[in-house]
Design a binder for these strands. Sequence first.
DNA 1: TATTGTTATACTCTATAACTATA
DNA 2: TATAGTTATAGAGTATAACAATA
Lengths: 129, 129
Amino acid sequence: MRVARKVRFDADNTIAPHRFSVLVRLHDRPRTLGELAAIEQVSAPSISRTVAQLHEQGYVDRAPDPDDGRLVHLSLTDAGREVVDRERALRDAWMAARLEGLSEGDRELLRKAAVLIEQVLDADGRESR
Amino acid sequence: MRVARKVRFDADNTIAPHRFSVLVRLHDRPRTLGELAAIEQVSAPSISRTVAQLHEQGYVDRAPDPDDGRLVHLSLTDAGREVVDRERALRDAWMAARLEGLSEGDRELLRKAAVLIEQVLDADGRESR
DNA sequence: TATTGTTATACTCTATAACTATA
DNA sequence: TATAGTTATAGAGTATAACAATA
């Protein structure tokens, strides 16, 4: 949690965390509003508002489902994809700078730990977050 | 960051994250409002309001500085200390449950990684966060 | 009737600007 | 004048309740 906090504070983020998170979900694949609400664990009105803003910013496309008129399919625009890539590059650079002083052995240890942590998270809630 | 998110979502936290964070800072030692604002990286009015609420909830004591009438020294009440301890116990339990399935070797790997990560964070910004 | 999404309204946390009290 | 903190006001994100459209 300290690492997460540090990245959030120091990495000069260019987009608000919850908006970035939504863009990342859509970077994986297109989703409906309901799916996003479930993944992000926020209410329907909340995700609706956030997506509306991202749509206005030109980062997200909205498309009605051809068979079910209630569904709205969201996907990233090219601009949205760029935002995700740029932000990820910023965070990667931040982390790389921090790991520079470590020995190769230490870095290898952290690589193994990262794999382990991913496993633990995936084994848990099948969250797909 | 995925771990932090998961803990925040799943661990049935009993107090809002930013309030908890302030209580943790005061658990370390008493501090003034200005110190808290700097540590938490929020504005003076923001920390002032948060601390006022924690004071109303009975978690924080306020005491004027005997020499400098502008300063307000904040410290935890017994109730505040309990909140921190309880919340930490919840998170520890959450984490312990998640690590149960690992081998002793894997857990040892994670212990070493945690030490390393602490070092990296401390080496960085001398943040005392 | 149930489901998907939006609108109305309110609460919390945040910030900047203006202010009070003390140094 | 400068510093520590508070009050006034506004913006962003969240929630619940009520609503519209579709199945």
